[in-house]
Write a protein that binds this DNA or RNA. Sequence first.
DNA 1: TTTATATTTCTAAAAATATGGAAATGTCAC
DNA 2: GTGACATTTCCATATTTTTAGAAATATAAA
Lengths: 122, 122
Amino acid sequence: MEMSRAVKALSALAHESRLAIFRLVIAAGPRGVAAGEIAERLEVPRPTLSFHLSQLTGAGLLEDRKEGRSVIYAARLKGISELLEYLIEDCCQGEVGGCAVPDLVVLKNCKPLGSDATGEQK
Amino acid sequence: MEMSRAVKALSALAHESRLAIFRLVIAAGPRGVAAGEIAERLEVPRPTLSFHLSQLTGAGLLEDRKEGRSVIYAARLKGISELLEYLIEDCCQGEVGGCAVPDLVVLKNCKPLGSDATGEQK
DNA sequence: TTTATATTTCTAAAAATATGGAAATGTCAC
DNA sequence: GTGACATTTCCATATTTTTAGAAATATAAA
């Protein structure tokens, strides 16, 4: 990932309303949430919401699809993991003990597929 | 972590120079880097750099210590992992297969301590 | 085709952030 | 002390981002 794309994604997340949108949509899973429902739940005026949603999709963090007359927003997994990966790219530089991202971060929440781990590793 | 702290941290990272600073400092490991060296390496004027560094430390992403007449900046591991954790908090909601943060993200870079994994897990 | 619904684009004004020169502060060596 | 160095604070300016009303677009139901 290039620097400028990472900055774009971080900028998209660096806003109270947009971070709330992002988390709401992530929590909704693959099904996604309609723009109108987001506006209602977060009490953001429609034009303002539309602006924020365009920032998030433009940054590759959300994706949208049409369904009837609604537009449904869902998390874009690839964009999200690329960003996280970029952030911690050089976190270990050899010395694993000093890693900036201890295993708890991911494993606490995400039991790897096909693994026999409990999610409470080590 | 509260929303407002997360926004602060993301805002700190959402800037070309600051993201470069962050990555430079992370890559330097626990030893850290002096402000002057960052300024030289990144070719940022001192007052501007000082402003950016204060954003990053204020956001809890870097920590500073004095050494002689230099100020050394290093990664603040706790702040970094708290932010990442907040971002992916609700990523799985039961359905592990749809996780927004596949295991590759962390494990590719960070072999857990005391593990016999190769870093190329699964 | 008329009407209601869902969302976005346009716009201009308000708010927040970034910039770097000059001056101030703190620290070490002589 | 004096002088050189390292970094930060002050500040005014410049730039970017955010905001939401009014108008435009698009789909669907009656």
